[in-house]
Amino acid sequence: MNASTLKQVALVEKKPPRRSQMLKQTLLGFIVPILVLLIWQAAGSSARFAGIVPTPWQVALSWYDWIFGSPGLGLNPYLGTWVSNVSYSAMRVFQGFALAMLVGIPTGLAIGWSRLVSDMLDPMVQGLRPIPITAWLPFSIAVFGIRDMGSIFLIFLGGFYAIVVNTTQGARDVDRNLIRAASMMGATSSQLLRRVVLPAAMPSIFTGLRIGLGIAWTAVIVSEMVAVKSGLGYVLWDAYYVGRMDIVLADMVSIGLMGYISDRLIVLIERRVLLWRMLQNH
């Protein structure tokens, strides 16, 4: 066995087992949530916030009834409605975000690749981007009414700008040597865009997708408070209106959970699509 082989064996032996590394990461991920729960429990149990901020245990019980309760039984209107409201919100996010992807990625690539398109579209994108989602609510209600399309429109706007800006930056940051090399080999402009610019811009595109998805969940909650009569946002506002802070907090946790799950799905897809990048880094 030569020196090079011995060195490789030593490196492998020094590398911690994957299972123990994942366990360590999982345990570290629980530290901050546990601290938050302890502070929350102390605040809910104190005289200052008693009756205002429910404890984590009270929220957990209400959340359980919200998920597993039988609809129509008793005076609690939230019994057993969690799944349906999560489904309404998730479907709206999916529709609005898919539309934002279909429009935002090609638009960002075009702005980043073509000076002409950039001069035509970029000023408008940068001018509209600072307008908050809440400012579009009156326009959305006036145009679409109290229907799903108004919510989908706001979700589309929320995801669109993050996707466009990051995709544009990714297209502009492509190594010019790659473009020159492909051009010297006879690649056309469309082939350069599809086979060089798009793959090179993928890391930035996925960054935009993750940011845009987070904004999309914000947009769906805002829109459901006013523009539609179902979903997590509607329940959040309704529960606040009737003084059910336990449902309000359970709703907030549900929104965070759904946002986290959808973000992990984007990350999983990113790892599959950008497998070449991970192998290159290792």
Rank of each mutant, 00 (worst) to 15 (best):
M1V: 11
A3H: 13
Q8Y: 10
V9D: 13
A10V: 11
A10Y: 13
L11N: 12
L11K: 15
V12D: 14
E13R: 15
K15E: 14
K15S: 13
P16S: 08
P16K: 04
R18Q: 11
S20I: 09
Q21F: 15
K24Y: 15
K24A: 13
Q25V: 10
L28K: 10
L28C: 09
G29H: 12
I31F: 12
V32W: 15
V32R: 08
V32E: 07
V36R: 10
L37A: 13
I39W: 15
Q41T: 15
G44K: 08
F49K: 02
P54T: 01
P56V: 03
W57G: 06
W57C: 02
Y64C: 02
W66L: 01
G69M: 08
G69S: 07
S70Q: 15
S70F: 13
P71I: 08
Y78M: 05
Y88S: 14
Y88V: 15
F97K: 07
L102F: 12
I105M: 04
I105W: 04
I105H: 02
T107Y: 08
T107W: 08
G112S: 10
W113P: 00
S118K: 14
M120F: 15
G127I: 03
L128D: 04
R129G: 00
P130K: 07
I131P: 00
P132V: 02
P132H: 03
T134H: 01
W136S: 00
L137A: 04
P138S: 07
V143K: 07
V143T: 10
F144D: 04
R147H: 12
D148I: 09
M149A: 14
L154P: 03
I155S: 01
I155H: 07
G159K: 05
G159A: 07
Y161R: 04
A162P: 09
A162H: 10
A162V: 01
I163C: 03
V165G: 00
V165P: 00
V174W: 13
V174T: 04
V174Y: 09
N177K: 11
L178F: 13
A182P: 00
M184Y: 11
M185R: 12
G186Y: 10
G186S: 06
A187L: 12
T188M: 07
S189E: 15
S189L: 13
L192Q: 13
R195V: 03
R195I: 00
V197W: 05
P199D: 06
P199S: 06
M202P: 02
G212D: 02
L213M: 14
I215V: 11
I215A: 10
A216N: 03
W217D: 01
T218N: 14
A219G: 08
V222L: 14
S223L: 06
E224G: 02
V226T: 11
V226K: 06
A227F: 02
K229W: 08
S230C: 02
S230Q: 13
G231R: 01
G231A: 03
G233N: 03
Y234N: 03
W237E: 08
Y240E: 04
V242L: 10
M245Q: 07
D246S: 03
D246Q: 05
V248S: 04
L249M: 08
L249C: 00
A250Q: 01
D251V: 02
M252N: 02
V253E: 03
I255T: 00
G256E: 05
G256S: 05
L257N: 00
G259V: 04
Y260A: 07
Y260N: 00
Y260E: 00
I261S: 03
S262Y: 12
L265Y: 08
L265G: 02
I266T: 03
L268Q: 10
I269M: 15
E270V: 06
R272H: 12
V273Q: 10
